[in-house]
Structures are given as C-alpha cells and as structure tokens.
Simulated assay, not measured.
Amino acid sequence: MSIDSAVGKLRAADRDMRDDPPNSIKAKDDVLEEYQPIFQFQEIGELTKQEFKDFLLFENNRHWTGLHRKRSMMTEDMDRLRDGLQTLVNEEKDLASRVQTAKEQVDGMGKATISAILVTAFPDKYGVWNNRSEEALKQLDVWPDFERGSDFGHRYVRVNDVLLNLSNELDLDLWELDALLGYVVKYDEDQQETIEDTEATGEFVKERHLHQYLINHWEQMEFSEEWEIYSDADDPEAGVEFSTGIGRPDILLTHTSEPKVCVLELKKGSTSDRAVGQLLRYVGWVRGNLKDLEGVSPNADVEGRLVVNEPSEKLEYAISVVPELMLYEYEMQVTLNQSA
C-alpha cells in the first residue's frame, strides 16, 4: 500500500471518528494544559514522583491504558528519572541519541512511555510508538524497514518520520493522529463481541478488565511459575497486545526455562468456537516469525491458551482436536466484609 492509499483510508476513518470522538480527542486540550508544562526541559528538575505517576494513569492522560504498570520501577530513583527526562526533551540534542539515552537510563521505560511523554510535550513534532500504533501502521502497510543492528533510538526516528508524514498529509497533530491510528486498528468479529457489555453477573464486564487484571497481577497467576510476558529491547512489556499486522494477541509469553512460546487469548462470558480460529491464526503467525522475536529460539515450540469464563460444548470439541491449544476457565469472586 502506498502512502497515498494509507492517507485515503485514514481520512475516511477520521470522518467517522469525528462523529463520536474518543476521550483522547475530547480531553486533549485539558490534558495538554495540565501535563505539557511539566515535561518542558526547564521544568523537569522540579518534577515530583506523584506528578509523574499521575500522568501515567489513564484517568488522567485520557489516552493510554498501560503506562502505569512500570511506574514503581521508573520512579524508584527520581534523580535518574529527571535526568533521563531532561535528556529526552532536550531539543538541542539529536533525537535518536536522546531517546536511546532516556530508555537506557530509566528502568522500566519503554517505547510506549517515552513516546507518550514526547507527544505530550511536543504534539506537533513527536508521535507515539506503541503496540497499537505499530499494528495500525502494519495494517496500513506503511511500517518502516529498519537497518540491521539499528538501536531503539534510530528505530524510533524511522517510525516518527512515517508518523510525521501522515500527520502532515492529514493536517492533524501527532496526538490526534495517535487517536486515529487506534481507531483504525481492526479486530475480527469475535474480538468485537468480547468488548460488549454483559448482563451476566460474576463476569468481568469487559474483556479488557480481565486483560488488565492479569497483566497487573501476573506474578500472582499460576501461569507465572513457568511463563513470563515477552519483552524486547524496545519495550519491557512488548508481549502485551503484541503487534503482528494481522491483529494483536492479548498476551505473548515465553517459557522461563524451555524454548517455548505461548499465545494467551482472553474471552469473557460464553465464547464461540470461532475463537479457536483466531487463536490458531496468531499461533501460526508466531510460528512463522520466530526469527524476529528477540531472545527466542527459531526452533521454539509455539502453543496457544484460551482463557474463558464459560466454555461451550462446541468450543471444547473444537479445541480438543488441536494438540497445541489448551482451554482454561477463570473465576471471579467478590467478598463483602462488614466494616468494624
């Protein structure tokens, strides 16, 4: 797909999005008014731990849901964090080097957090690189090629060049472009069904709630005894909604001691057996792209696990004939204790 074709699709999507703008668009001015000043070079020396943690929460930035997960790690040494952020927003220095330095200096800071800070500080200059925007660029066939051996900083510059090009063609700032890219990320029919509200009690109201719960409490899950969330040099949580270009698996896992990879898909409520086809699609993609997974053996075994609340008989039959797939049930309990 050419850049012109991508721009045409984005223009059409933008018209649809404006009919019912997402919160990230509605709240843009308020968010930038509050947080843009604190990420300017001359102000970062006064940045407090609470201010930074507050920005990472979706309820405050109104745009990104997963930034807060590494907040304790990033704020453990506030002097290092302030130094890293001052380097990141110092426009007198080369973009690639300051992005690379900030990432190396601040533990837990990956591409999503770095680019969220940059677009907040300079929404006309720097775009967002996270798994969602990467998936959109891949689906639009404008994802850039990287030079072999290029570091994170130089890869971000290549991604930002594409985002700037789209931004200029669409006459949107990079904050709104990121919202638009999120809007155009397509899900198959089963994924669309899983984000519908459910009337049944005892279930997670949305699949995303289950997803966020598992990520936030991974160390408490039985899975964590043998599996960890995939990470790479660009992002300590690269396996969360991993970008493939054919959809985003909920969680990509690697085994802690064996050459094995697992695709974990989460579904709420009673799940159709069509979910098996979706999971097989992701397993097949991972199996065909093992060489591109950092730190993973190109001969690794790949399996899939489907986590549901109510496995239907059809689903159980469908998954029983695929040895690489396993089915799990989740249970949710709520306990009310009278206060003293």
Rank of each mutant, 00 (worst) to 15 (best):
N289F: 00
E258H: 02
L279W: 07
D79G: 07
Y156A: 06
W64F: 11
D16A: 13
F58G: 15
R18I: 03
P298E: 13
E91I: 07
G149W: 04
I246D: 03
D173A: 05
K70V: 01
F152T: 08
R62V: 04
P311L: 02
L88A: 06
K53G: 09
R281K: 14
V286I: 15
N130K: 04
G245R: 08
I117P: 03
F39A: 06
R98D: 09
Y183P: 07
Y35H: 11
S297I: 00
K70R: 15
L164A: 06
R15H: 03
I117S: 02
C262N: 13
L280I: 08
N60S: 11
Y230T: 04
A13Q: 10
C262Y: 05
G295A: 12
N309Q: 15
W218C: 08
E34F: 02
L293F: 01
Q333T: 03
G295L: 09
E43G: 00
K9V: 00
K9M: 05
S339R: 09
T244L: 01
W64C: 12
T201R: 13
E135N: 07
E176A: 08
D235Q: 10
E176Y: 05
S257T: 10
D188H: 04
G295C: 13
V89E: 04
L280Q: 14
G149C: 05
K260E: 01
A121M: 03
V162S: 06
L85T: 05
E222P: 02
T120S: 07
T113E: 11
L180E: 09
T201S: 12
L290K: 15
S24F: 02
G149H: 07
L280V: 12
F52C: 11
H255E: 00
K268L: 14
L56Y: 05
D20W: 02
K53A: 06
A96S: 10
L336W: 06
L88Q: 14
E237K: 08
K111Q: 12
K260A: 04
T65F: 14
D141G: 03
E43M: 05
T75C: 11
A12E: 08
F52S: 11
D14Q: 11
M78Y: 02
G202T: 10
N90I: 01
E91N: 13
V302S: 00
E207I: 13
L57G: 02
S24H: 08
Q212Y: 15
E51G: 10
L264M: 09
G288T: 09
E294M: 13
M73Y: 11
F52L: 11
L264F: 04
K206H: 15
K186H: 03
K268E: 14
E241V: 06
D151A: 01
K93S: 09
V119M: 05
Y230K: 03
N60L: 03
V240Y: 13
V296S: 00
K49R: 15
P22V: 13
G247S: 03
I215M: 14
Y156Q: 08
F55K: 09
E135I: 08
L56F: 04
V205D: 14
V142K: 09
V322L: 12
D54V: 01
E313Q: 02
V321H: 10
L164D: 10
R98I: 01
I251T: 09
T87K: 14
L327K: 10
V31R: 04
